Computed example of a mutant assay.
Amino acid sequence: MYTSKVTGLGSYVPENVVTNDDLSKIMDTNDAWIQERTGIKERRHIKKGDGNSTSVMGVKAAKIALERAKLTKDDIDLIIFATLSPDMYFPGGGVRVQDMMDMGTVPALDVRNQCSGFVYALSVADQFIKTGMYKNVLIIGSENHSGGLDMTTRGRGVSVIFGDGAGAMVLSRNEKEDGSGVLSTHLHSEGAHAKELSLEGPSTDHWVPEIIAKNDQENIPYYPYMNGQFVFKNAVVRFSEVINEGLQKNNLTPVDINMLIPHQANLRISQFVQKQFRLSDDQVYNNIQRYGNTTAASIPIALTEAWEEGKIKDGDLIVLAAFGSGFTWGSAIIKW
């Protein structure tokens, strides 16, 4: 059986910076309130006319990852695109990337697992490579949240958290037998809590005309809803469980971790998990302060930046972990 290895990383965020002070001008909030609850100082939002979309940002990140992997678009055997905010209801972002990059008839697969989408996508790519079916897989996490948020005081509990951006990874067959690569991935879900972090409309339950006709009377939600405290309590438990699961699978302990890249949901969640595993600041990478929660894009953006900053080196043990809507959660243990 083959193993898989990360050969290229790339990320892209829009140039438009939206600070907490900017948000305080359009809703009843302030910098101290947002930072205390989330750790976020600013985020990036697509600006009308800048040419960006979920797929466009994914392509920009993908081109960087391919260049760093020393591969061309023709070397890619499969695209896996993770997002909750595709350019359109259907088709998904994967085929849009395939077309924009002129990649021929390479297969494209979309993953809709929200905050844990990238970890799920990585796990799928790893399985395809392990079986020998594909050699090089392009994995993208990209999100355009800003256009679908309630940017008023009513929606501030959710809207201040999210930002736009994309990250990409090239996962390739490992030609070396040196123990490096993806050691294992671990995935879970608990649909009983699906509505605690959700967007109910538009959907096949609430089509657009129905929402327009009935929203005033029935208050059908067409902005994201989040039960913040409930999500937080579940997240800190599941993060710890799925990280421990990965470590135990590989006969490792928290002491072996060189870098933990958690999904950037909330800085307070990351800090709680860091304390649980007794990790130093140098062992955990957070960038939510600058980008907010970019959902499926958050792990590949953070992983790319950590690598660019020299904080990830050959031989390091890297742990990726995520939790989010669904509820879904997962982890990946990687020997760099």
Score class of each variant (00 low, 15 high):
16 N>I: 07
291 Y>I: 13
206 H>D: 09
118 F>T: 03
188 H>C: 11
198 S>W: 05
127 Q>W: 06
182 V>P: 03
237 V>L: 13
156 R>V: 01
155 G>T: 08
254 P>T: 10
284 V>Q: 05
255 V>D: 13
55 S>Q: 02
281 D>K: 10
41 K>L: 13
127 Q>F: 03
32 A>E: 15
308 E>P: 03
320 L>C: 02
112 R>P: 00
57 M>V: 02
104 G>A: 06
283 Q>T: 00
28 D>P: 01
226 M>R: 03
157 G>I: 05
285 Y>I: 07
85 S>G: 05
270 S>L: 14
222 Y>P: 06
167 G>T: 01
213 A>L: 09
222 Y>L: 07
280 S>R: 00
94 G>I: 00
294 T>Y: 06
25 K>R: 14
8 G>T: 06
15 E>G: 10
131 T>Y: 01
300 P>S: 11
199 L>I: 13
91 P>N: 04
166 A>D: 05
16 N>Y: 02
64 I>V: 15
296 A>Q: 09
83 T>F: 12
187 L>T: 03
20 N>V: 03
137 V>H: 11
282 D>K: 12
260 L>V: 05
235 A>S: 14
193 H>A: 10
242 V>W: 03
288 I>T: 04
54 T>A: 12
192 A>V: 11
256 D>W: 06
241 E>V: 09
308 E>W: 01
315 G>T: 09
183 L>D: 00
78 L>R: 03
214 K>V: 05
118 F>K: 09
131 T>N: 10
79 I>G: 09
41 K>R: 14
183 L>G: 08
21 D>R: 12
97 V>T: 13
191 G>S: 13
70 K>T: 10
216 D>A: 14
8 G>K: 11
300 P>N: 12
37 R>H: 02
24 S>A: 15
284 V>R: 04
301 I>N: 08
168 A>P: 03
96 R>Y: 02
218 E>Y: 07
319 V>F: 01
307 W>P: 04
263 H>Q: 14
87 D>L: 08
